[in-house]
Amino acid sequence: MSTLTKNQHYVWRAYLDEWADKNSNIYCFMQDKVKLFPVKSANIAAERFFYQLAELNDAEIEWVNLLIDRASNEQLRDFHRETLNTFQLVYRLRNRIQNASELSKEGFEMMSKELDIAEKMHGERWHGFIENMAQVSLEELKKCSADFYNDKVEGNHFIHFISQQFFRTPKLRAMQIRKYHPMWHRGLDLDKTWFIESQIFAMNMCVGILISKDLYKFKFLHNANKVPFLTSDQPVISLGADNEGMRLYYPLKPNLAGLFEKDTNAALKSEKNIGVMELEFYNNKIYQQSYNQLYCNSADYLKEIISIPKNVIDKW
């Protein structure tokens, strides 16, 4: 019998555990409640049934197909259409069993229960699968190794993971939920379409990087300062695309962070020891691009960071 995971993480717990202290606590600042507190990784960066699917109406299907049609090639568009069909399958099955006269009452109730679970768990299981596939690359990155990237399978797993982690968060969901939309009057609910949208955007990003995979390089930033790297509920952030391509920043643990960027002249891996000013630059960027939660292994340092209003940080 299938089981439910009600508290669904939008940031990987195995990643967050790097910010735990000796008592397995992570210090979290909840921005909407202006509250700083110690907490276990199981209870942060999560929301009740965060990945629950929704049955899309005609306007919502039309909107998703409009996004699909923007993809760069037909193969990618076909992939997106299959993704849409996959995550709407539970509703087609539900409609089918409702009209299946040959089903017994017990059979109908059993299948209905399993479809309810699938509706709540399909997205959660999908992201769990992606995380499992990225375990090797994340562990290697924490050792300042990029050798995994030369392996086609492991390198592709990493690119898929980093793209999904960028788009799977509540910050990106909130950016998609706009008050006014040309199709709003027709019943379009962007909250319902968000999960499918996140898959489309993540795969577009993934394919964009894969096309130039050999040109993307890793730069490891070592932090020997007294203050740590921060992370947040938006742990992968963009430092802005230049003429070369995407520039992604990803803190890996309190004393190590990584840049993943297109650099035609660099080696696959480079390393750099950073000073306090550069550390503060990256931490301010994490604060600026966070949604609601900041995480750190030091309560004192987190208090210093949050003493500056976020809207001031935004202007830096």
Rank of each mutant, 00 (worst) to 15 (best):
R81V: 01
W63A: 14
Q52K: 14
Q88M: 06
A46D: 01
L56R: 02
R96H: 10
D58N: 12
A59T: 02
N99T: 11
Q88T: 01
A100M: 13
W63M: 11
H80C: 11
L67T: 07
L67N: 11
L89R: 14
R77K: 15
R94F: 13
R92D: 13
S72V: 03
N99V: 02
N57H: 09
R48W: 05
E55A: 13
R70N: 12
V90N: 10
L84R: 01
I61Q: 10
Q75F: 09
N57S: 08
I44A: 06
W63P: 07
F50A: 03
R77P: 05
N57I: 05
E47F: 00
S72H: 11
D58V: 09
F49I: 03
E82M: 11
Q52P: 08
I44P: 04
A100T: 14
I97D: 09
H80A: 10
E74C: 07
E55L: 08
E60M: 02
T83H: 04
L67Y: 01
N73E: 10
Y91R: 02
E82C: 06
Y91W: 11
L67F: 02
V90Y: 12
N95R: 14
N95H: 14
F49Q: 06
L66V: 05
V64Q: 06
N95V: 02
R48D: 12
V64A: 03
I97L: 15
R81T: 07
F50H: 08
R70D: 15
W63R: 09
L76Y: 07
T86C: 06
A71Y: 06
T86D: 13
V64N: 06
R77L: 01
N85Y: 11
L84G: 00
I61M: 12
I61D: 04
T83Q: 13
A46C: 06
E62H: 11
L67K: 12
V64H: 00
L76F: 05
R94A: 14
E47L: 01
D69E: 11
V90A: 11
L53S: 08
R94G: 13
E47K: 14
A71S: 15
A45G: 10
R70P: 02
N73H: 11
W63L: 10
A54D: 15
E62C: 08
N73R: 01
I68Y: 00
I61E: 10
F50P: 00
T83N: 10
V90W: 08
A45Y: 05
N57D: 12
Q75E: 13
T83K: 03
N85S: 15
L53V: 02
N85A: 15
N73T: 06
R81N: 05
E60F: 07
R77V: 00
E82Q: 09
A71N: 11
F50L: 00
I97Q: 10
Y51N: 07
Y51F: 09
E55F: 05
L93S: 13
F50E: 04
A100D: 15
A71M: 09
F79E: 04
F87R: 05
F87V: 06
V64I: 15
A46M: 03
E60R: 05
E55I: 04
I44L: 04
R92P: 01
F50R: 01
N95G: 14
L93P: 07
R48Y: 09
D69P: 07
E60T: 02
N85L: 12
L53K: 06
Q98G: 15
L76S: 04
Q88N: 05
D69S: 08
